[in-house]
Design a protein around this nucleic acid. Structure first.
Length: 441
DNA sequence: TCTGGGGTCCTAGGACCC
DNA sequence: TCTGGGGTCCTAGGACCC
């Protein structure tokens, strides 16, 4: 079974504010650069849609339309109530998002005949409406995730569609390819170029033609979905693979200190979420959207996982230093991926930390003194693009560099030219500047 | 007053290793 | 003299989803 709550954010607002009932309601970003998250069915009648710029929705919706910024805590509470009802049906419930979930009815104790699941779904919808104070949902039931999802889309809002076993292809074939999960604008356009518009058309394509057209994984996936061949399981707990935060600014930013402060704030959000979830990750990714909407990412994988906001901000700043910021930036984002469990108080984690940081407790052992002097001065700070390096004992010129490495020729006595060293980002001689100074040309 | 924010998965090339 | 074949990891971008 697939359940999709109807115009969810708008429905919660209409439930909580009776004056909004029967009126167009748009929930989303209300600023100049906001987009629509959810439009109520009344607003959809005027053309308002998810992902549409709110400015456009304001143009096409009549006076009296409510534009709301959203109350996510309220949506979360309502969602939790619904998910709890689903868990009464089966232990196997997979929340896809705040307003959507799959339920493996076969894992519960149910009559799986068409009349049986129809009665079950009608009862569920009634109980959702009562428990949430009037929020409705659309339900699809079928022999696979794909069919259940398609079923829930077929009769919206407040709908119920059961696709009986054996009738899958009859239901699928007349539908447009866009109905299949994973077929977006780009794939639909490619398929249209070979005259494939419906899932029935798709069924006639050979596996080789399909994978040539849209790639190996995508092609084999679509080949199977067109045949109602879908054995994906309902997964109750998915581990997060990345944590990120991003922000579109009301006006493009150029001021380095403002950008730096924004990175601190974003890294702070990511770091606290990582720490709350007891994870940390090795790869830090910076996302940049320029004034002209061109978007790029830069990432760096560290030798050890991080969950500390300052460290995350440090890496992000270094990455931003290598990006062309002329013309202004519209958006900055910071993410951490390559996550691993990193529970505090975890003995294994502490042991791991010891190997990284050395013993936690202060020991009587003196710092070991190297027998031979280091071959060159330690580099204190270097940022991509920077051509002079300041070191603990002198300065050097950057001979060559990549994003996470630098080759430096250090000054030395005239009789003995300085050595050339290549340092990677994880070289202990390459230490973060404090305060970070990525603005240095 | 054009185009959010949070994610997942896949691909492709290069470095590197055996 | 000349250049294999397998694999993993990292980086960057793109498609897609809600």
């Amino acid at each position: 079974m697939h359940l999709d709550l109807d115009a969810f954010f708008a429905a919660v607002e209409q439930r909580d504010k009776p004056s909004l009932r029967g009126r167009p309601v748009v929930v989303g970003g209300t600023g100049g650069r906001g987009v629509v998250a959810t439009a109520s069915y009344e607003a959809r009648a005027y053309g308002a849609r998810s992902a549409m710029p709110t400015a456009e929705a304001r143009r096409i919706c009549p006076p009296g339309t409510a534009f709301l910024g959203g109350r996510f805590a309220a949506y979360r509470r309502t969602s939790d109530v619904v998910m709890a009802l689903l868990r009464e049906l089966s232990p196997l419930v997979e929340p896809v998002s705040i307003d959507e979930a799959y339920v493996d009815l076969a894992a519960g104790d149910h009559d799986l005949s068409v009349p049986g699941v129809t009665a079950l779904a009608l009862d569920l919808k009634a109980r959702i409406a009562v428990a949430t104070g009037g929020v409705t949902g659309s339900v699809g039931i079928g022999t696979s995730k794909s069919l259940a999802k398609i079923g829930s889309e077929l009769n919206k809002p407040d709908g119920l569609t059961v696709v009986p076993a054996g009738s899958e292809l009859d239901v699928l074939h007349p539908l447009p390819v866009r109905s299949l999960g994973g077929v977006g604008p780009a794939t639909a356009e490619r398929l249209a170029q070979v005259k494939v518009k419906t899932i029935g058309d798709l069924h006639r394509l050979s596996l080789v033609d399909l994978t040539t057209l849209v790639g190996q994984a995508h092609g084999t996936g679509l080949y199977r979905l067109a045949r109602a061949d879908d054995d994906r399981a309902v997964i109750t707990d998915r581990e997060a693979k990345s944590v990120s935060a991003e922000e579109t600014f009301a006006r493009d930013l150029t001021d380095p200190s403002r950008l730096s402060a924004e990175l601190d704030a974003l890294a702070g959000r990511v770091g606290s979420r990582l720490q709350r979830s007891g994870t940390s990750g090795r790869t830090v990714t910076l996302k940049v959207r320029r004034y002209d909407f061109t978007t790029l990412t830069r990432s760096l994988t560290l030798p050890q996982p991080v969950d500390d906001a300052r460290q995350i901000a440090e890496v992000a700043r270094r990455l931003l230093g290598a990006v062309d910021r002329s013309g202004g930036l519209r958006l900055l984002g910071v993410g951490v991926s390559g996550l691993s469990p990193y529970a505090q108080g975890d003995l294994f984690a502490e042991a791991l930390q010891e190997t990284v940081d050395g013993p936690t407790e202060v020991t009587e052992e003196p710092e070991p003194v190297p027998a031979d002097p280091a071959p060159g001065p330690a580099v204190v700070a270097w940022h991509p693009g920077q051509d002079v390096v300041h070191a603990e004992r002198g300065a050097g010129w950057v001979w060559g560099s990549g994003l996470n490495r630098v080759t430096v020729r250090f000054e030395g006595p005239r009789t003995a030219p300085g050595p050339v060293r290549t340092l990677r980002a994880d070289d202990p001689d390459l230490q973060p500047a404090d305060p970070p100074d990525w603005t240095t040309p």
